[in-house]
Write a protein that binds this DNA or RNA. Structure first.
Lengths: 344, 344
DNA sequence: TTGCTGCGTGGTAGCGATAACACAGTTCTG
DNA sequence: CAGAACTGTGTTATCGCTACCACGCAGCAA
């Protein structure tokens, strides 16, 4: 009697159990006030027919989809992968499903994705925005009454929850460490300053130099794309300077990878010929090459906490004003900076 | 006049443009038969109100959501990350959105996720199943008339499209290579044989041994979880044998990472003391440690092709019987096997 | 003029679920 | 033992959108 192809609906179940759709609905929803006998009959009908309630219909009438969006610029970056982990777990426990979106650090794609999520009527969005210019997209969310939380990157002038790592403090410590090892010419490979983390890390870099009475040299600050290719090009540029740096700080892990390749391609080695430190650890790479000195951010915690705040906001248990959480990073000294840490 | 909080609906737009909702609908859907003047008025109303049509309502009436699910056992594994890349891109171009799900190689979670996707009324599912036991979940999909395609791992007895790498052939070549370098005691760290890739790679391993007249030694085949921890334990076990192997083949990249760590922890080194080869490259790690000899699968192509087949099936342009595509892997000889390849 | 075709538009119904209320029967209260 | 309170169930009306059909009016053939 199963209908050959069309989806099985609540009516089919109701007919089979000899009750009204309403009663089936009550059973599905952990119902109140359904007699045990009826309930059993309905449950049997459900399992016999293999009925699965439509989230579309449910979402439409309830005006709640129970879905969150998690939007990151690069799912293949181990840093964001960890954020995804944390966010999904918290969301699941809180009874929400997560739609994961990768913007590939492309502002247009990000806009498109956000429109999609509005169309999907997600209840909240946790996002690591592409850059400050994402502000416009986020305003769309606000206009639609969709709650959102910024993760990893903040944007000025938005009153919302924010969970980020301590970029300026972390950067400062990394650079101070290099200075303490005797370096005075320290390069910095960084991305567009339209990204808060890049700005903050640059500030940390400059602060450290200033504190050590080192005049910053504009030539030592190189802008590049935040991927290995960018790191390669950036390091290449630094190495080609008349007076190249003896140490380099890269804005993140992927950039560091490319930078190391560039060093090797020049017949040099890290840290013998040039010291290197960066933000963010690389889960898998650091196992094979446990030498990179990094400022490891608690990525999974960023994801967990961000989602937590988002859920609270959706459920109305958050204060009006946005909360800003800054998590400290963990300084992991390994060999790449020239400080001889024993490995393994 | 915008309603203060409630979502803006097609009616609001209609009222503002002075037309019926039906006409607005026609405009949204690249409408046929709408006068240019009316169309412009409607489009203005839409942009003034910032209207975004609800996918819920649309999906409900059209019985088509334009959404696919991509289900993988581990988004943080670079191999699957590449599959995701390829799949998303193809889906987007074909006009579908993708919901990405991570099952963490957990059969129960996979079941849950599949139920979710049925509830979401996705039109198709591309899945790298946890194991042969995923068959039951996939039967649910079939029953609900949801098309699906298997990626990376096949399951016997399912008539559906399948896109996989050449696991047995690839494994055989890797092991033959080790043999050609003089190794006769070759270990194999592998996962449960309920996963097709594990079975196929084991077959390739055994085939290569047999072809070289080497008696397989059961002690040299170790079962472990497919992550670095498993690789560590597995390698440990092999090293502790009375007659340990001189070379080891691991079922995938993450296992290799742990295996290398175990070797180092024993005060040995790859490849000087033990040769190592594995399936799948590691995008980022191989940049820092470009020494691992691997059988690299065309992961992104797996994702692309799988999604392509899925879309064809959804749109009815596929043959009745499932198609099976086996893509060759690329043998990348680097130093970890002891064959001295020049790097970079 | 009479029809016929086609265009632009609106009306009505219904996708699959639930909110809100209604209602008969039962149990409790005093 | 009447009326209140509760229990289990059904009815109706949407949620936001689109299929489907109807309708008025223009243009055109006969």
């Amino acid at each position: 009697m199963t209908r050959s192809h069309g989806t099985i609906t609540i009516k089919d179940v109701a007919a089979r159990a000899g009750v009204s759709p309403m009663t089936v609905s009550r059973v599905i929803n952990g119902g109140q006030r359904v007699s045990p006998a009826t309930r059993r009959r309905v449950e049997e009908a459900i399992s016999e027919l293999g009925y699965v309630p439509s989230r579309l219909a449910r979402g439409l009438i309830r005006r709640r989809t129970g879905t969150l969006a998690l939007i990151v610029p690069d799912v293949s970056n181990p840093f964001f992968t960890l954020i995804v982990r944390g966010a999904e777990d918290v969301a699941r426990r809180a009874g929400y499903r997560v739609i994961l979106c990768d913007t590939r650090a492309d502002l247009d794609l990000e806009e498109e994705v956000i429109e999609e999520m509005i169309a999907h009527r997600v209840e909240g969005v946790a996002i690591a925005p592409v850059s400050d210019r994402s502000k416009r997209h986020l305003a769309r969310l606000a206009r639609f009454g969709v709650q959102f939380v910024l993760i990893d990157r903040t944007i000025a002038g938005l009153d919302c929850d924010v969970v980020v790592g301590d970029s300026s403090g972390g950067a400062r410590r990394l650079v101070e460490h290099l200075i303490s090892l005797g370096h005075r010419r320290i390069g910095f490979i960084v991305e567009s300053d339209e990204v808060s983390t890049a700005r903050d890390r640059q500030r940390g870099y400059l602060d450290a130099l200033e504190a050590a009475d080192i005049d910053p040299d504009p030539d030592l600050i190189v802008r590049a794309t935040v991927d290995p290719a960018g790191g390669y090009v950036g390091m290449r540029r630094l190495l080609d300077l008349d007076d190249p740096p003896t140490a380099v700080f890269t804005v993140n892990n992927l950039v560091a990878l490319g930078a190391i390749e560039a060093v090797r391609a020049s017949g040099l080695e890290v840290p013998d010929d040039i010291a290197l430190v960066c933000f963010d650890d690389i889960e898998y790479a650091s196992r094979l090459y446990p030498f990179l000195t990094v400022m490891a951010q608690p990525a999974e915690t960023l994801g967990r906490l961000g989602t937590q705040l988002l859920v609270e906001r959706i459920e109305g248990s958050a204060p009006d004003r946005g909360r800003v959480v800054v998590l400290p990073a963990e300084f992991i000294v390994r060999r790449s900076c020239g400080a001889g840490a024993v490995h393994a």
